[in-house]
Structures are given as structure tokens and as C-alpha cells.
């Protein structure tokens, strides 16, 4: 009886050890996959909802992990523009809203930096955005409708001044030439 107990205990310990060891072996470098979905946000002006779900290979959720979102942009070479970061909850899920700057095809990256034994992971995804923030507009110059027309008015004034000067000079000269023939004068 004692020998059975002893071997059971030994076997149990062995199993437990192996299982434990196996667990430790399994716990190192746990691969994590990120599953990202994009959907239009609740309110149109919020843009899109980016949802991410972190799972291990056997489907267990990875919680309390930071996921950073980036958008791939071309600004002096290809760069990743930081959007925001979220923290996964008990189900390994997190979401945020994102209003892109422009419509069109957007390349995004979701990057999780891992935690403890969970590996970093990265997921690239693309979606076609049809909702975007208002494009940049230059502030209109105040009074522009008035100042655009003003030069014409002032130009007219300048031209009439020149005309007057010309008239004063030429008109007087002509009047004097013509008046020569008028011989009547007061002695």
C-alpha cells in the first residue's frame, strides 16, 4: 500500500513537475496574434473605430497590454505616424476612434510591445477611408472683396488727375496761341 502511495506520489510529482516545467516552457515566448478590425464609428465625425484583440496561439486573451497604432506616411521617406495607444481589457480587446486626415487607402500598423512572457506582435492592415477630417483651408484675408477692387478706383482717380494736369497745360497753351489774334486789349 505504502509502495503504491509512494509511486503515486512520485508519479504525481513527476507529472506535476513535468506539467509545471511544460507550463514554464509553454509560458516563455508566448506568441500573440493581434486581430484588428476597422468599422465606421458610432458618430460620423469620429471617423472609424479601430478594434484590436490580442490572443495567444490557443485562443487565450492577452490582457493589460499596450497596443500602439501607427499610420504609414510618406514624409521624407516612409515613416510611421503615431496615432494613439490603448490598453487591452480582460478579453484582450481594446478599441479607439480614429479620424484620418485624408480619404483614400490608408496603411495602418498595430503594434503590441508585449508584457512579461508575451511576445511583441505587429499587425499591418489596410482600409479604404471615405470619411476624413476637413482639409486644411487657408484663412481668407479679411476685406478681400473690397481691397481687390480698390486699385481700380484709385487708378481711375490717378488717371483723371493726369488728365487734368494735361488739360491745364495743353489747354492753356492752346488758349494763349489762339488768343494772340484777339487784338483788343486794355491799354
Amino acid at each position: 500500500m505504502l509502495r503504491l502511495l509512494g509511486s503515486a506520489l512520485a508519479l504525481g510529482t513527476l507529472i506535476a513537475l513535468t506539467a509545471g516545467l511544460g507550463n514554464v516552457a509553454l509560458a516563455d515566448h508566448v506568441r500573440v496574434t493581434a486581430n484588428v478590425t476597422v468599422a465606421p464609428a458610432e458618430k460620423a465625425e469620429q471617423g472609424y473605430t479601430l478594434s484590436v484583440r490580442l490572443r495567444t496561439a490557443d485562443g487565450k486573451p492577452v490582457n493589460e497590454t499596450t497596443v500602439r497604432f501607427y499610420q504609414v506616411v510618406d514624409l521624407f521617406g516612409e515613416r510611421e505616424m503615431y496615432i494613439t495607444s490603448v490598453l487591452t481589457d480582460g478579453q484582450g480587446s481594446a478599441s479607439t476612434t480614429y479620424l484620418p486626415a485624408a480619404t483614400g487607402r490608408l496603411d495602418l500598423v498595430a503594434r503590441s510591445s508585449g508584457r512579461d512572457h508575451f511576445l511583441d506582435t505587429e499587425e499591418r492592415f489596410t482600409f479604404e477611408a471615405s470619411v476624413a477630417a476637413a482639409p486644411y483651408r487657408l484663412a481668407p484675408v479679411p476685406l478681400a472683396p473690397f481691397t481687390d477692387r480698390l486699385p481700380y478706383g484709385v487708378g481711375a482717380v490717378v488717371l483723371s488727375v493726369w488728365a487734368l494736369i494735361a488739360f491745364a497745360l495743353v489747354g492753356t497753351a492752346l488758349g494763349i496761341r489762339r488768343g494772340r489774334r484777339d487784338q483788343r486789349h486794355i491799354a
Binding site: 488758349g175 494763349i176 489762339r178 488768343g179 483788343r184
Partner: peptide, 17 residues
């Protein structure tokens, strides 16, 4: 300009000035 001081010349000049 051939000024001789006639009244019409005078008038033209006054107007110009």
C-alpha cells in the same frame, strides 16, 4: 507761346493756373 496779354489769353491762363 506768343503771349500778348489779350483778354482771351488772360482767361485761358487764369483757368490753367
Amino acid at each position: 507761346l506768343g503771349w500778348t496779354g489779350t483778354p482771351s489769353q488772360e482767361r485761358a491762363l487764369q483757368r490753367g493756373i
